[in-house]
């Protein structure tokens, strides 16, 4: 499956990025794809709308409201605190449960209708999210 997600914590310094790593690791371990948009103090790198459109599910690991939430409208999703995916097997367990819910058709869907492409309010891009941090997809020390 293909997943996209957003991570954000209060200070935007550490947990945002730890959660990103945790979700990417979980996806790798379970044999899925995961692209994370970090909404941290270093800024936000909005992911391409195509990635969102192609996703089977959305994971919001956030302590703050998701910026540009309407971009994900209609997608099955799970939303939880940023700490809930960091450490041990938490990320893997969250993703496994979410996959089960998607497969059972019981996963909640993000409210609203997806805006027309031109109306999609994407914050100013620095770099595509998928390229921001090289890491577990790019080799151990990517």
């Amino acid at each position: 499956m293909k997943f996209v997600g957003v991570t954000a914590c209060i200070t935007g310094i550490a947990h945002t990025y730890m959660a990103q790593a945790a979700l990417e690791q979980a996806a790798k371990k379970l044999g899925h794809e995961m692209v994370v948009e970090t909404q941290g103090s270093a800024g936000t790198n909005p992911m391409k709308q195509e990635l969102i459109d192609a996703a089977d599910g959305v994971i919001f690991a956030v302590d703050l409201p998701v910026k540009g939430r309407e971009r994900f409208a209609g997608k099955p999703y799970i939303e939880l605190g940023v700490a809930k995916v960091i450490g041990g097997d938490k990320g893997v367990n969250v993703m496994s449960d979410f996959i089960a819910a998607i497969e059972a058709g019981t996963a909640a869907k993000i409210e609203g209708d997806k805006p027309a492409p031109a109306a999609a309010p994407e914050p100013k891009a620095e770099k595509p999210a998928g390229e921001k941090k090289k890491g577990f997809f790019g080799g151990l020390f990517g």
């Binding site: 935007g12 550490a14 990025y17 730890m18 790593a21 970090t38 941290g40 103090s41 270093a42 890491g135």
Partner: peptide, 12 residues
């Protein structure tokens, strides 16, 4: 701040 974010990422 991105450097610090990268550190947090690597710590995982």
């Amino acid at each position: 701040l991105e450097i610090l974010g990268t550190l947090a990422y690597k710590v995982m």
